Amino acid sequence: MWFMRLTTKGRYAVTAMLDLALHTDQGPISLAGISKRQEISLSYLEQLFAKLRQRDLVSSVRGPGGGYKLSRDAGDIFVAEIIDAVNESIDATSCGGGGSCQHGEVCLTHYLWSDLSQQIHEFLSGISLASLVARKDVQAVSDRQDRRERGDLQLDDVISASTLG
């Protein structure tokens, strides 16, 4: 049986990959830039990107102007694949997928939560980075983050952005 548990590692990996996809037209993207925009520690991103590179989701470009880029088209990279790459799973069961929450035995609702985990994985398997990039709400958040990074985010921008969500 297959289980999913979405933790900070999985969420951060998806966030970082979406940031990379949103900025792909700028050439290789530095982890420092992603770190600043997404407020994720640089050392944590380095660990995540090592796993993402092993799974051939990203490739690194060395030298001046180097950084990371997607290894394939954003339409061919799916959210579940990113979560799987960082060795995470989404598990809605309370027993951590092992089926031993009641004295070493499966509890009454184990299979219900296990089925939910499978449904979540299937749902995330159908969402590509490109479909997220195409969303206007995602683009608005990215634009706000870019303005903040450049230092030209105004108070009225923050107020109007907060009304989006």
Rank of each mutant, 00 (worst) to 15 (best):
M1N: 09
R5C: 07
R5P: 09
T7E: 09
T7R: 09
T7C: 02
R11T: 05
A13W: 13
V14T: 02
T15I: 11
A16R: 12
M17Y: 11
D19K: 14
L20R: 15
H23W: 15
T24H: 00
T24A: 05
G33A: 04
I34W: 13
R37V: 01
R37C: 00
F49G: 06
R53E: 03
R53M: 04
D56V: 03
D56W: 04
L57Y: 03
S60E: 13
V61H: 04
V61P: 06
R62D: 14
P64L: 02
G75H: 01
I77S: 06
E81P: 01
E81M: 01
I82A: 07
I83T: 01
V86H: 05
V86G: 01
V86A: 08
E88G: 08
T93Y: 08
C95T: 00
G96P: 15
G97R: 02
G99T: 02
G99L: 00
C101N: 11
Q102L: 13
Q102F: 06
G104T: 12
L108K: 14
S114C: 12
D115L: 14
L116G: 00
Q119P: 05
I120C: 09
I120R: 08
L124C: 06
G126H: 10
L129W: 07
S131W: 07
L132K: 00
V133M: 13
K136T: 10
Q139M: 09
Q139I: 12
S142Q: 14
R144E: 07
D146S: 11
E149R: 09
D152N: 14
D152V: 15
D152W: 14
V158K: 12
S162M: 09
L164G: 10
G165A: 04
